[in-house]
Amino acid sequence: MKIWVYLNGNQQGPYTLDELRQLNLTSSTPVWYEGLSQWMPAREAPATASLFCSEPVTEPVFSGSEVKMSLMDDRQPVAGARADMPPAPPTFIGWSVFLMICCFPIGGLLGIIFSVMSGNAYRAGDYTRASRLSESAEWCVIISIVLGLITAPLMVALF
């Protein structure tokens, strides 16, 4: 069985189960193999869970990327994406639509456009561009929220 892992900020693999034993996997290291619908912590994936049964329970050590991975629980290998690509960078579509309607239209609109372009770039196999666009979308969301928070008290005061 070929198993990919997400270690030290990089997707690595494929490994066999025996090779994984040699690596310093924590039980929360994200893993994926054919048949899993999404990345999941090694202790929860059926094929790798056995690696942790005999070990004493230790506090999992989170690296930044692992924390990020565990938050992206809806991230799945996307159709069209190559198997050796890292998971899709996060998009901010929900935030962008909300902000476009309720807060700061131009910022939200740009957030939607960057998010959609990021998804397209990822599906086209261009991970670098996808993550750059994802970052742009994130900035649009942050700026919109900040502008919204500045103007909201102003409006309340006017009422």
Binding site: D74, I93, G94, W95, V97, F98, I101, C102, S115
Partner: peptide, 30 residues
């Protein structure tokens, strides 16, 4: 405004809601 609030709710939801996301976040719908 309710549409915007729905998008925020889906974004902030702790459950993955893959089907709903695929529809709501698809370029065509947006």
């Amino acid at each position: 405004v309710p549409v915007g609030l729905c998008y925020l709710a889906v974004e902030l939801s702790r459950r993955p809601l893959p089907k709903l996301r695929r529809i709501m976040f698809s370029p065509a719908v947006l």
